[in-house]
Amino acid sequence: MDESDAVDELIVLYLQGRTTRAQEEEIRSWRSASPENESRYQAFVEVWQRTAVAQPREVSFARPTLSDLEGRVRRRREAVRSLAPGMARTLRWAAVVILALGIGALASTLFTDPDSAAYAFVTEVGTGDGEMATWTLPDGTVVRLAPNTRLQVRQDANLREVELDGRAFLSVRPDPTRPFRIITPEGEARVIGTRFEVNTTSGELDLLVVQGAVAVSGGGREVEVRAGERSRSQAEREPQIETVRDVEARIAWLGTFLAFESTPLSQVAAELESRLGRPIEVTDPDLRARTLTGWFTEAEMEDVVDLVCRAAAVQCVSAGDTIRMTAGSGTAP
């Protein structure tokens, strides 16, 4: 990571209110060192103000649709794109961080009270023809809805439960004390923490596990579905399990959307490799076991790789067409 990138990251942390006192002093010293530094800082502030997520006190609590929420994020992204090309290049890291906030940050401010020790969260959302949406639930679970999908969510201090009609990809935040339940007309699934796809559009509960395991119920029987396996069941038919050879092809409808939940870096690299079309190597066993949590949508894959390298504190370098992840903080090629 060069000095310019390090400064950019520090400014982003400062604007998020996540810096230490020493880092705040470092920012102040850097700004006062030259007029160019101050101009660069003010450029960051401009982007941040034009793309900032609304604060809870500014939000109407009339229930918005996911289209409304995504429209707000889209307008903020367009504000970034409207900047002069030179400024946009300088602030690429800031734009990627803002992009990573996405609709989930908006949904959290709209529907949860961060000052409350206990909360009750009940709502229903949906997508229309040709519409997809990403939503972060209060517990940190990320949901990607396919077109023509309805989702009802119920969560409190003891319960995590959703009713689904349609198709969705979920990255569930682990919580052994509150297993995550999915209810459909064709059966139920019980999750502790995993990533998986659920599809009810064909009149059955069709579930594919990408990471972790899910217990699926149908026909009076519960079976465990593991990573790389697909289960198909109905209310009166026991789940039938099969191995899926090409998981990525099955979830190709997600497009540029990616979500990781305590995912080993080896698996993160494999999924990025599939999307980017370039080999990504992680040979160090310790690095392969390092985990990552986060989600991205509508971002260039090169930017996602860059952000993953920074978040995982690994050095990413190009060797021909191959990207190698090695120990040490660094940036992607």
Score class of each variant (00 low, 15 high):
M1F: 08
D2G: 15
S4M: 11
D5R: 13
V7N: 06
V7H: 07
L10E: 03
V12S: 06
L13T: 10
L15Q: 10
E24L: 03
E26V: 05
R28Q: 15
S32W: 02
S32F: 02
A33L: 10
P35C: 04
E38M: 10
S39L: 13
A43H: 05
A43V: 00
W48S: 03
T51Y: 03
A52V: 03
A54P: 08
Q55S: 14
F61Q: 12
S67N: 12
L69C: 09
E70K: 07
R75K: 14
R77D: 06
R77H: 11
E78Q: 14
P85R: 00
L91C: 03
L91N: 02
R92T: 01
R92H: 10
W93G: 08
W93K: 08
A95T: 06
V96Q: 06
L99C: 07
G104Q: 12
G104K: 11
A105G: 10
T109V: 02
F111I: 00
P114F: 08
D115K: 05
A118S: 10
A118D: 12
A118Q: 11
A120S: 12
V122R: 14
V125Y: 11
G130Y: 09
E131F: 03
E131N: 00
M132S: 15
M132E: 12
T134G: 14
L137Y: 07
P138S: 14
P138T: 09
V142H: 05
R150C: 02
Q152Y: 09
V153N: 02
V153L: 04
R154C: 11
D156H: 04
D156K: 05
A157M: 05
N158R: 12
D165A: 15
R167K: 14
L170K: 00
L170C: 09
R173G: 06
R173L: 14
P174Q: 03
D175C: 09
R178Q: 13
R181G: 07
R181A: 12
E186S: 14
T194M: 11
E197P: 10
E197W: 00
G203W: 01
G203K: 08
L205S: 01
L205W: 04
V209K: 00
V214R: 02
S217P: 07
G218E: 01
R221Y: 08
R221T: 08
V223L: 12
A227P: 06
E229P: 00
R232W: 07
R232I: 15
S233C: 13
P239E: 06
P239K: 06
I241C: 02
T243L: 10
V244A: 09
D246T: 10
D246S: 12
A249K: 12
A252N: 11
T256I: 04
A259Y: 01
T263P: 05
P264S: 01
Q267E: 15
V268C: 02
A270M: 09
A270Y: 08
E273D: 07
P279T: 03
I280F: 06
L287T: 11
W295Y: 10
F296E: 00
F296T: 01
E302Q: 11
V305P: 06
L307D: 05
A313E: 15
V314T: 01
C316H: 04
A319T: 09
D321E: 14
T322L: 04
T331S: 14
